[in-house]
Design a protein around this nucleic acid. Structure first.
Lengths: 301, 301
DNA sequence: GGTTCAACATAAGTTCATCTTATCGTTGCA
DNA sequence: TGCAACGATAAGATGAACTTATGTTGAACC
């Protein structure tokens, strides 16, 4: 069994550098016999002498020189490992894998990334945009550190942090701008455009329009909110979008935005991560950044 | 102060591989609490958690994965260091720096190198050919491991090993082949060709011809024995050469070889190395090889 | 040629890190 | 609700590594 220690490598390097047991021991902050013993032990482990002990000088053997090169390499790598750790434990740094649902990602991510990278030097953000069930799976498998989704998720292994509530607004063709805002029930009689299956926002919109009722008959599906808004602009129907999307999606399309009367349709947005994640503390910081970004985005809407 | 240990890196690697404290501890041949403690200690040193301890599984954190890559690299290098040591301590191997004086090198080295490299796989021979004082200096400075020279050297820091004695023979023009062999005193009246200053063989030849007497008047110097023999062949004078050189140097030249009557002029050839050299044991082996090569070379003369 | 100094090795004792056994707390499962 | 698996914790035991004190050897100096 090989039983070299890093301590021995450090002592060895010091002795090779000084060529003198006493001075090398001093720089290692140990006594001279302690250094002698460790060098001797190291030689025993390696099976060859590393130094040639003369009366006036201590010199590396040829073998010792080979070992020295290797030892310095090893010590350098170990110190780098320590550097990695130091960089990593300082607040937010290192790799951070964030999952985001598609109905949030385009509107919130630019601000989040800007704020996070600006305030945290060595932070390396990886993003994943997909629907909630996939995000949950990837969290469980340890392939994501956190996800920004609509709450509740109700997975026992996840911690949920509530960030903010966002309302849904009605998107109508521009020509309807002056018409009265319809009641939710009226929406069933209009052609309602929705996202494809799998998006939580589809379900949220449906539950608002068809609260407690059976599923609708025929619906036209779009693959993104952007597509839906364009379709509305073309007069094909109406849709709901989260208020955060308003600023971005209504810029080019000829559509009108209307808020509902009475209780607003809405959803709670939050962040989730594994309850056991050691990043909890840092993720709490991230959550604050996301909350601030979300509120700012809504204010701009 | 950084206080990582290789032991911790090994434990860490095992735990990362197994994802299970109990089994990892088993492969490390320690108890489970011991492993827990070392991992905890390592996390404390690095300042971040390496593993995410779930109820059913132990998984690396992102930081832990970074550390794992580095740790595996380090462990690999340490093991390689052990390999180097194992290869090095097997009899004769690794770098061997041999110095040889010029009046021996051409005649003995081919046989020595052949024998040494044939019998010892990983032996890497470096050669240095120069005059004795320079060899001594380089030995002292640790730039050579051993030297083959004429004894005695009488340097207190060197170990001398006697290898063999070689006689000097007279080289005369081919036309003189049948003449009686002159007494040493007669040589003073003949034109004696010698090596340049600095070669010990020059001094040895002089002390034979001018035993106890003052230095000669004018001498013609050659830079090598080969040159001297060629000069003799051209009828310029006579010279002495070590018997080992006879086979090689008289092959092409038109010269006659003669042994002196009575006590032969000679010198002792030996190997020297630093008394403190850890290679002593191996160098003794080398000395035996050199001795055998020298005897074989003389026999062939 | 003895003496002294410098420097590394050795010895004995102590300290402290690390290991072991035993036990607890939590979590998931029947 | 009890059980089983698993990691954390606690306390005592062991052994590696350090310290101080002393020995040994070679080099330099008078």
């Amino acid at each position: 069994m090989l039983n070299l220690t890093l301590k021995q490598l450090r002592y060895f390097e010091a002795l090779a550098r000084h060529g003198h047991f006493g001075r090398a021991a001093e720089t290692c902050a140990i006594s001279q016999p302690a250094l002698s013993m460790q060098i001797r032990e190291m030689e025993a482990v390696l099976g060859s002498e590393l130094f040639e002990r003369g009366a006036r000088q201590v010199r590396l053997t040829g073998f010792g020189e080979d070992v020295l090169l290797r030892a310095r390499e090893i010590l350098r790598e170990v110190d780098e490992l320590a550097d990695i750790a130091r960089a990593a434990r300082g607040s937010l740094s290192g790799r951070l894998r964030i999952g985001v649902i598609p109905t949030i990602a385009p509107y919130l991510l630019p601000a989040i990334i800007a704020r996070l990278t600006e305030a945290n030097e060595g932070l390396d953000i990886h993003l994943r945009e997909t629907v909630t069930p996939k995000l949950i799976r990837e969290l469980e498998e340890g392939r994501l550190d956190t996800a920004i989704v609509a709450l509740p998720v109700s997975e026992p292994f996840l911690t949920e942090v509530d960030l903010f509530t966002e309302d849904f607004v009605l998107v109508r063709p521009g020509a309807d701008a002056e018409k009265p805002v319809p009641q939710p029930e009226k929406l069933r009689e209009m052609r309602l455009l929705l996202l494809e299956e799998g998006h939580c926002f589809r379900d949220q919109a449906l539950s608002f329009c068809y609260a407690g009722q059976a599923a609708p008959r025929e619906l036209l599906d779009g693959s993104s909110l952007s597509t839906l808004v364009q379709m509305v602009g073309a007069g094909i129907g109406v849709t709901l979008i989260p208020e955060m999307a308003v600023a971005v999606e209504t810029r080019s399309a000829h559509v009108a935005i209307a808020r509902f009367n009475g209780t607003q349709p809405s959803r709670r947005i939050g962040m989730v991560w594994r309850r056991t994640s050691p990043l909890s503390k840092q993720l709490m910081q991230v959550a604050e950044v996301v909350r601030a970004a979300g509120l700012a985005q809504r204010a701009g809407a």
